[in-house]
């Protein structure tokens, strides 16, 4: 028996919108720790890891570890029927081939049940090693989204370089090239507008902008994004989910042969 009650149901709606472009089908894993997902895109270039901790739910009951295969587009279709202020409860019985999403309006005057068929998904679980990163950039998520969008109108790839001067995003294409430099900025009154750069050593890596743009769909979950970079390692683009956990995107670099 599984019953997870999330008062801020809009979080789940946003999570789905953030990942459904990248991944079509995925297993949601439920355990005593929380509600989680790890899935790669079909080309094995990008991976999404989601964690919503048990403590973040108003009610969290998970009698035994359960893995539920869901089509994310179908799940998104159902969650779009929940109001932004609705409380969402996820329910499943042991051995059942369906999951139920229950939406309650804040005034409790409307309650809806949506039952969705589960699917068997063979998915490979990757062990992601803990890495020391050469540079960690924390910046406003809206700014990062804007940069990725702007650069993708010029080129297909972005070179992210971190130096003492700041973090530089560069691209080039048929019509020309572009460089955007963001400097460290902690003097702002609002912490959510800060740009903070922790650099052990300079690093420069190349990534496909198509994926970066897809990751920025998570921007509504968090005011800030953290980008962790190391030479010849996948970049980690992390959006914290208030009080609950995170959504992390890993993207393999493009490397000169």
């Amino acid at each position: 028996m599984l019953e997870l009650r999330l008062v801020q149901g809009s979080l789940l709606k946003k999570v789905l919108e953030a990942i459904r472009e990248l991944v079509t089908d995925a297993n949601f894993d439920c355990s005593g720790t929380g509600f989680s997902l790890q899935a790669m895109d079909s080309s094995h270039v990008a991976l999404v890891a989601l964690l919503l901790r048990a403590e973040g739910f108003e009610h969290y009951r998970c009698d035994r570890n359960l893995s539920m295969g869901m089509n994310l587009n179908n799940m998104a279709k159902m969650l779009r029927c929940a109001g932004n202020d609705d409380i969402i409860t996820i329910k499943a019985d042991d051995g059942s081939d369906t999951v139920t999403f229950m939406f309650e309006s804040p005034k409790q005057d409307k309650i809806a049940d949506f039952e969705m068929k589960l699917m068997d998904i063979d998915s490979e679980h990757l062990g992601i090693p803990d890495s020391e990163y050469q540079a960690i950039v924390r910046m406003p998520s809206a700014e990062f989204m804007r940069i990725c969008k702007d650069l993708s109108s010029i080129g297909d790839t972005v070179i992210i370089s971190v130096t003492k001067e700041g973090v530089k995003f560069s691209t080039s294409g048929e019509i020309g090239s572009a460089n955007i430099v963001c400097r460290q900025n902690q003097t702002v009154d609002k912490p959510e507008e800060a740009t903070v750069i922790e650099m052990q050593e300079p690093v420069s890596l190349t990534f496909a902008l198509r994926y970066m743009n897809s990751f920025t769909k998570a921007s509504s979950l968090s005011d800030q994004v953290t980008i962790s970079l190391s030479s010849e390692l996948p970049v980690v683009v992390e959006y914290k989910i208030a009080e609950m956990g995170y959504i992390r995107f890993y993207l393999a670099p493009k490397i000169e042969e």
Binding site: M40, V45, E124, H125, L126, G127, P234, Y250, A252
Partner: peptide, 14 residues
Amino acid sequence: TSTQKTLDIFFRSS
């Protein structure tokens, strides 16, 4: 020109 790597070479299957 650069080549797009896949995640399999960085993360081990578990």
